[in-house]
Design a protein around this nucleic acid. Structure first.
Lengths: 192, 192
DNA sequence: AAATACACTTGCCCTATGGCAAGAAATGCT
DNA sequence: AGCATTTCTTGCCATAGGGCAAGTGTATTT
């Protein structure tokens, strides 16, 4: 199986070769067609995903009913609503494939077993959670300290696949503006 | 010492009576005058605080130079910049007392020792971190799904001490609006 | 008690952004 | 290839919220 792939994903000093075999076995490959919903708001997540190919997003509706993209998920990234999956509570967001794609999933029960059996996996999970908090905190700071234009430029630099593969409107709402405004920002940028 | 107080703060099934004594001993009482800075952006946090009395806040400057309050800290809450304290990186925010107050602090080294020696404390810390992620995620969802007016009403209901003790301008920037706008919202609310 | 410093409200005006809609461009489907 | 759908741009207009400043109120200091 795809041991190499999983070694780069679940990279932790405590994990040994046999652990990776165990981890690999827990995964099942799954294909998603463009537009497929992976998880809907209000439902309880049943699976953990690692993206292999394609682009995914999470979104919700603001107080005016507009769709707001809250995150993009690229290959090699983990896609889950962690609180829904682990605390068994309704998901706060919707998750959707915005291109055809493939992922490796782990069922909830299997995931719990892995956590239980493999110490290094547990530690990897904790590290991942800590990192999530770091990233989320940084994003909430960026939203106020960096203008939409600059965050767009950052996105181009740091995650160009998103710019190339996502419709403008998803990127716009991710940046906190409308597609009309982002279109104008692009014009500004290209003009100078 | 204030064992009862610390028992309500560090509440975890693994913690036993002797642990609370150990934990209590690690704390030093400290008084803050209104306006005192506890930690400034760019510096590395050296202490962990539990608020006993008073009101505190964290803030930063947006891309137009406006002060933005990012969080309020009330009695019985933990006040730290966790990544600055534990990863030894510069703080991203400023922390300030907005009333006279008292807190219990633990020095960085002492905190590390506690984590090392007391398993229940370590577990409590993990639980706290998980909860931080949950709260931060919920807040970032609230910002888009609930209007400023409704978030203000929620704040009145859920954390009335803040409304009573904090100047309007801090609350306004916390809600993502100016003090002028919040003043108008209050008028709206009281009128009808 | 006067003086000073904040805090809050309110009016006026202005600007950035959104809503809408038309048109152009690109993409996908049959 | 031709049609349909979606995406993106752009103009016009409306509006929520911000900037500013004056005026009132409330504390704190000397």
């Amino acid at each position: 199986m795809e041991i190499d792939f999983f070694q780069t994903i679940y990279n932790h000093p405590l994990l040994r070769k046999e652990d990776y075999e165990e981890i690999s076995k827990a995964h099942t490959k799954i294909e998603f067609a463009h537009g497929t919903m992976l998880l809907e708001k209000g439902k309880i997540a049943g699976e953990f995903y690692v993206i292999e190919k394609g682009l995914f997003r999470s979104f919700l509706y603001d107080y005016n009913g507009n769709e707001i993209t809250t995150e993009f998920y690229c290959p090699k990234e983990i896609l889950i609503e962690s609180f829904s999956l682990f605390q068994r509570i309704p998901s706060k967001e919707n998750f959707q494939a915005i291109s055809d794609g493939t992922a490796w999933k782990i069922e909830y029960d299997t995931f719990q077993e892995l956590l239980h059996k493999v110490e290094g996996f547990r530690e990897w999970g904790r590290t991942w959670a800590t990192n999530q908090l770091f990233v989320l905190k940084q994003r909430s700071i960026d939203v106020v300290t960096i203008s939409a234009t600059d965050r767009y430029l950052n996105l181009i630099k740091e995650r160009p696949q998103i710019i190339l593969q996502s419709p403008l409107k998803y990127i716009a709402s991710y940046l906190g503006i409308t597609d009309t405004s982002l279109s104008r920002i692009r014009k500004e940028i290209s003009t100078g």
